[in-house]
Nucleic acid binder design. Sequence first.
DNA 1: GTCTATATTCCGATAGAC
DNA 2: GTCTATCGGAATATAGAC
Lengths: 196, 196
Amino acid sequence: MDKTEIKPAVQDSTEQRIFEAAHEVFTQKGMDGAKMQEIADRAGINKALLHYYYRSKEKLYEAVVRAVIAQAIPMVRKVLESDLPLEEKITRFIDFYIGIISKNTFVPLFIISEINKHPDHFFENVLPKELPQPQFFFKQVDEEIRAGKIRPIDPRHLIINIISLCIFPFLGKPLMRILLGMTHEETKQLLEERKN
Amino acid sequence: MDKTEIKPAVQDSTEQRIFEAAHEVFTQKGMDGAKMQEIADRAGINKALLHYYYRSKEKLYEAVVRAVIAQAIPMVRKVLESDLPLEEKITRFIDFYIGIISKNTFVPLFIISEINKHPDHFFENVLPKELPQPQFFFKQVDEEIRAGKIRPIDPRHLIINIISLCIFPFLGKPLMRILLGMTHEETKQLLEERKN
DNA sequence: GTCTATATTCCGATAGAC
DNA sequence: GTCTATCGGAATATAGAC
């Protein structure tokens, strides 16, 4: 028991706190909008420490992006690669996904935005080793179509449809609120309802 | 014919060129990512001139936002307020919308992103005088449900669904391309197909 | 490891000549 | 109206004391 350092998964080390603060700020404001000062403030430490742990803003950003991607990929794989029956699979995915995203509203917009603005960061540096394999999902859809269980559809469109209907309502929440003239409460409730 | 200045709608004045350059840069990079230098470069003029025509970066940004909103609002009104039969209305909207957005990929993401990052700019300064009125649309949907023409659905969800399915595929295009392992060409073709 | 102070870079904005 | 040159502030990054 004389380890000099305990290394539990959840540790309140400075590095950890910095990372969490950076995660918040970057996902909400993007690479350009994020300021090192704000990150330092939220972490309750000094600007200089940011550079001590992560050499530069860019490196810190990369760490966050990597974490965000690492969290997102398994969710997608889960849909594409599990061998549950299609409908069940989709239902589960939607439940699971809407749960996550409700608590983490900024992440999807962050991913989409930053891919557009800084494609290099995503594709040169932070690309995950193992991309999801959609082939299995394609095959499954084809089978269910042949069995007459679902109407004929290009499986890629099906995926896009599902993802669109799950993600966009959250992305566009503020916009919709204005268009439909709703209060925050109504908006929140409406999104809850969508699990149908 | 001795007017000192001709004032056609499409004029290649410096102010016009600045605005167009600003429109490109702001919609692609957002308020924070956009740099005055880049706007000047694209307009083929000097940084100082930007300030001559538009006093500040913020003012220039506002001008762009105003234009973007002014262009977007009528599109939404068209769906919500015209008195075509519902299905026809939706079909037309989709055609029309996908046409526009294909040429103007960045605008929707710009709107959604900037609303999240700078709500003040959108809601304090640039709010359009006249918001679309969804009530008419709601009523129409109700009627068609009662007539048994469409299955029962909260009209707000219907709107959200339509918009999601139209907009998100473009927002998420780069993401989808990676997930599904497609080439640019395949992606483009897939989006074309979606008018179904 | 953590801080203060300072260097460095970048960018929006202004002054002033033409 | 348009340019060059420069100011001033903000933000990233480093030096160095503790």
